[in-house]
């Protein structure tokens, strides 16, 4: 039984007070007027946002390192890990002089996540060896057009000096999980 208010239905003859409807109607009116004065459940969304869970998984961010260079090396591990096959990328080789832009010799020239396919599971984040991709507590902006929902690097990459805060995602368990990854830049200080 799912609720304690369920009533067994029986096919008995209705009593007089049931047949004249009025008591039932008055009872119903009392129920509705009680709701009339109840506190409303609505959250006035664009003006008020609901408090989100600390580990809410929303729109992704492609991190840059402390010098503003992209961390992603287009290894493709996130795309492999992705159960929804939402990630596509094209790798490219870094040219001399681009050290400021890209952290390592290879980088993602195109990096796209289809936000309509994505199920926000966060596996890409777990898979990434370079701490390059994280899910954040930002909501994905909606669009009436499917093409707009394929987010490229322009929407995913964070701006240098205007980094997206991901400390909430770095819970104790995550740091524990990542401590075995031996790349220097993966070791949290």
């Amino acid at each position: 039984m799912l609720t304690n208010r369920s009533k067994v239905v029986v096919d008995k003859k209705m009593t007089f007070s049931e047949r004249i409807y009025l008591p039932a109607i008055i009872g119903g009116l009392f129920i509705t007027i009680k709701h009339f004065f109840k506190k409303k459940a609505t959250i006035d969304y664009p003006k008020v946002t609901r408090e989100m869970s600390g580990v809410y998984r929303g729109q992704h961010v492609l991190k840059v390192d402390e010098n503003g260079a992209e961390r992603c090396v287009a290894c493709g591990l996130c795309a492999v890990a992705c159960p929804a096959e939402a990630i596509t990328m094209t790798g490219a080789e870094r040219k001399p002089g681009e050290e400021k832009l890209y952290r390592e010799e290879k980088y993602a020239a195109v990096y796209e996540i289809n936000m309509l396919r994505c199920i926000y599971c966060g596996l890409c984040e777990d898979a990434c060896p370079k701490e390059a991709i994280f899910l954040t507590d930002r909501l994905v902006e909606v669009s009436s057009n499917r093409d707009d929902m394929i987010f490229g690097k322009d929407k995913l990459k964070e701006k240098y000096f205007n980094e997206v805060d991901i400390t909430k995602r770095l819970t104790k368990e995550v740091i524990e999980f990542k401590k075995d990854k031996f790349h220097l830049h993966n070791q949290m200080d």
């Binding site: 509705t32 007027i33 709701h35 009339f36 004065f37 109840k38 409303k40 459940a41 609505t42 006035d44």
Partner: peptide, 12 residues
């Protein structure tokens, strides 16, 4: 009235 009875806030 409909909104209030249904625990919503209606047009605002």
């Amino acid at each position: 009235v409909a909104a209030f009875i249904q625990d919503r806030i209606g047009p605002n």
